[in-house]
Design a protein around this nucleic acid. Structure first.
Length: 782
DNA sequence: TTTCGCTTTCCTGGTT
DNA sequence: AAACCAGGAAAGCGAA
């Protein structure tokens, strides 16, 4: 502050100082900036928008997505008028695609398997993600065609709770948010899938990317053409029939428009399996024979196949991961990055295997849920309801997409709340759970008042609507009128305190602890669906026992602890193979499976706190969890948490500060044990820290709030787990330290001063090993 | 099964 | 007065 005053009040001095100029440069600024932005996303800090897909909500930053996508730029620009956080519901894209795209937009690269590439490019094309749209001419062509066709036929589905916003959106001709109610016959899917397989078999990896891309573009062009034709003709089925006259089998798929569609991975997998089983081989072109039940199932699910490449995912022998990297693309308008070369294939294969494992786990969960769902059995095994439901006015159309379609609502928190509802809470007459259980009160059918969808043609698909319980009803598992669950974004961006109801708290208590593998639970106790609430829910103590509310920190007035209880940020489920700070195993042990070493990156992806990785003990090489001070040391050693959660006050003396004590306490409290409840308060957490005053691991720093100091025990542990080369100098020891030092007959070097060097070379049992992270606070002044 | 280290909760009292 | 810290007491958990 003084510097500014001097500058302005004494220009002469400023000029004199200008003679000697210094260039301050943060060497790793670029990569650090990118990494930190991605960390902000994964930790849901400063997020001001959300993407929703397949039942998940991804907090994002408008600036990043706008920089990476013209579509998002337009959306956020126009949605900014509502002064609420926009939520973009990406329909027609799978969870994997969205997560990969987010990773690509935030880090500039993503590694995916080859079979997933076409779907990713398709979604990227729809979202106009820079860097993935290298064929700018084609992109522009498609865009022009879409705009031209969209004048009449691109269905406008911008809907929101706020009527004013809806009106505003409509008045602005919100063309970017569109829905193409066009579908492709399953026969076409097969044909294109076969084409794609032959291409994959013939081409090398690079060529394969190009061909897949071209095939995708051609297909999109045909779709645009079809829509355009639909615009000019009132008989769209003609155009659509011309699209695939050879493959359309009216006998097999003539009930398509009556099938209730829904989109989910479970369903897609079902479809892929079905297609795989019936798909003719390369050398044969026999028509598949389908039983009526299978026919209907396929009809149902094929309508939701987002791309013909979904079938390829089953049949294609190619599964090599592909790393998509941009050197001039989306994010570089914000910050240029020096891309690191992708990891070696072995590591990628390991990542692939992990992904497959996770996928299998997910499938198992979903299949178990499926078995429990009588409604689903009814759907898959019998004819689904062929008429549109019903009397409920709370309906909306689930689009069947070929290009991704989007719904924007300004009421993020309310919609998010509904999106995160467990699927079984859907209305009983809903035979197909949807990944987008939008709140009925926020969504109105585009033909109002409600009228059942009228079949137009076998190809034009009007998704049957379904019921959804309106908000603030007793059927809702959460009394939202009392506890509107807010966005999982940072409290900085969502300063709305939310109150947790008893029901919701009881629900959150059912979530298995972080360090335990959730045991199979009966469905009435533990939803087999992925628990959506705890990691995305903000809540506070409704007992008013949380004393650290809106308190200005004494020594740091800029830091305000809000009343919000922010749960530990969910660690990203998406793979981050190349930019993952932690890529190695904490400890290596040959113990049983229970003591298997924890892979931090896997822990992070699986929603577990990577800083809670176990530590090998000396005795019997057992594994134990970190102690609270060890946990803090890890947080201090990681650029994703230092300085956001903790930071050094005096590194050489081992003095550190809890920047976000409530969050740190809560993250710590969510580890194993019966105390893994929703809220370990800082008050209790601090008591645990004070316990270690006696053990020597920590020392108090008097008269300073949230400030502690590592004691000789911690120093000793650091010393033992730190290579001597990194031990730089001696620490100024306190009297107590000196006494203990003398008693142990050896000096305690300062390893804390070398902590910044640790990530580069150390693979200790104390610190999670890190790849050379550019964000390791190695800012240098040149 | 017991012991022990550690965590968590609750509490009182003191300091800022 | 509120926020925070220090520390005692007790219970619980998990590893040894």
């Amino acid at each position: 502050m003084k510097g500014y005053v001097t500058k302005e009040e004494n220009p002469q001095k400023h000029v004199m100082m200008a003679d000697k100029q210094y260039q301050l440069r943060w060497n790793t600024h670029t990569s650090s900036f990118v990494n930190l932005l991605d960390q902000f996303r994964t930790q849901e800090l400063y997020c001001d928008a959300s993407l929703a897909c397949c039942g998940r909500v991804y907090p994002v930053h408008q600036v990043v997505l706008s920089a990476c996508s013209e579509f998002f730029s337009n959306v956020f620009t126009q949605a900014s008028a509502s002064q609420q956080q926009p939520l973009v519901v990406v329909q027609g894209a799978g969870r994997d695609e969205v997560e990969c795209l987010l990773e690509f937009m935030y880090t500039g690269q993503v590694t995916i398997s080859r079979v997933h590439l076409p779907a990713l490019l398709r979604v990227a094309s729809s979202l106009q993600v820079k860097g993935l749209l290298e064929a700018q001419g084609l992109q522009q062509k498609m865009k022009d065609q879409q705009l031209e066709a969209g004048v009449k036929d691109i269905q406008f589905i911008a809907k929101g709770i706020d009527t004013q916003f809806e009106t505003e959106v409509q008045s602005r001709q919100f063309q970017a948010i569109c829905q193409l109610n066009v579908r492709v016959s399953p026969g076409q899917l097969e044909t294109e899938a076969k084409i794609g397989q032959r291409e994959e078999a013939e081409c090398d990896m690079v060529k394969d990317e190009v061909t897949s891309w071209n095939t995708e573009c051609e297909r999109n062009e045909r779709l645009v053409e079809a829509v355009s034709g639909f615009a000019k003709n009132t008989r769209p089925e003609r155009h659509l029939s011309r699209m695939a006259p050879k493959t359309y089998d009216s006998n097999s798929y003539d009930v398509v428009q009556d099938i209730v569609p829904y989109e989910s991975r479970r369903h897609e997998t079902e479809t892929c399996d079905t297609l795989s089983s019936i798909m003719p081989s390369h050398d044969g072109d026999t028509q598949p024979r389908l039983s009526p039940a299978t026919n209907q199932r396929l009809s149902c699910t094929a309508s939701n196949l987002k791309s013909p490449y979904s079938a390829q995912r089953v049949k294609s022998p190619c599964s090599s991961p592909i790393t998509l990297t941009t050197h001039h693309g989306p994010f570089h308008s914000l910050c240029e990055t020096k891309e690191e070369p992708p990891d070696d294939w072995v590591k990628q294969e390991e990542e692939e295997e992990e992904e497959e494992e996770e996928e299998e786990e997910r499938m198992e969960e979903e299949s178990s849920w499926l078995q429990q769902s009588d409604d689903m059995k009814t759907l898959l095994g019998h004819a689904p309801p062929t008429s549109a439901p019903s009397s409920s006015p709370h309906t909306f159309s689930t689009p069947v997409i070929t290009p991704a379609s989007f719904i924007i609502t300004p009421n993020t928190s309310q919609l998010r709340r509904e999106l995160l509802k467990p699927l079984p809470n859907l209305s009983p007459d809903l035979t197909c759970p949807t990944p987008f259980p939008l709140p009925s009160s926020s969504i109105s059918h585009h033909t109002s008042p409600y009228s059942p969808p009228q079949p137009v043609s076998p190809h034009l698909h009007f998704s049957p609507s379904y019921h959804y319980s309106p908000l603030h009803t007793s059927s809702s598992p959460y009394p939202h009128s009392v506890s509107p669950r807010s966005s999982p974004s940072s409290p900085r961006s969502l300063p709305h305190p939310v109150i947790t109801s008893a029901v919701e708290r009881a629900y959150t208590k059912q979530i298995p602890p972080l360090m335990k593998i959730p045991s199979p639970s009966p469905p009435d106790v533990m939803p087999t669906q992925e628990p959506p609430i705890p990691q995305t829910t903000q809540f506070i103590n409704d007992d008013s026992t949380y004393p650290y509310s809106m308190t200005k920190e004494r020594s740091h007035p800029s830091i305000i602890h809000t009343r919000l209880f922010v749960p530990p940020p969910p660690f990203p489920p998406h793979p981050r193979p190349t930019s993952q700070p932690f890529t190695q195993t904490v400890v290596h042990s040959s113990e049983s499976n229970n003591d298997a070493p924890l892979n931090l990156s896997r822990e992070r992806r699986r929603g577990r706190d990577p800083f809670l990785g176990k530590i090998a003990t000396k005795r019997k090489r057992r594994l134990r969890g970190p102690k609270c001070w060890e946990y803090l040391a890890r947080l201090l050693n990681d650029p994703t948490t230092n300085p956001f959660l903790v930071r050094w006050e005096n590194r050489s003396n081992g003095v550190f500060r809890l920047v976000e004590p409530a969050i740190v306490a809560q993250r710590w409290g969510r580890r194993a044990g019966k105390h893994a409840n929703e809220a370990l308060t800082y008050e209790n957490f601090a008591r645990g820290l004070r316990y270690h005053y006696a053990t020597g691991a920590l020392q108090p720093v008097s008269e300073r709030s949230f400030v502690y100091r590592f004691g000789p025990k911690a120093l000793k542990s650091l010393q033992e787990n730190t290579p001597p080369a990194l031990i730089l100098d001696r620490a100024p020891l306190s009297s107590q330290q000196q006494q203990e030092t003398h008693s142990s007959s050896h000096s305690l070097p300062t390893v804390l001063t070398s902590m910044s060097s640790l990530p580069t070379t150390v693979s200790s049992t104390f610190y999670p090993p890190m790849t050379p992270s550019p964000a390791s606070h190695s800012q240098s002044v040149t």
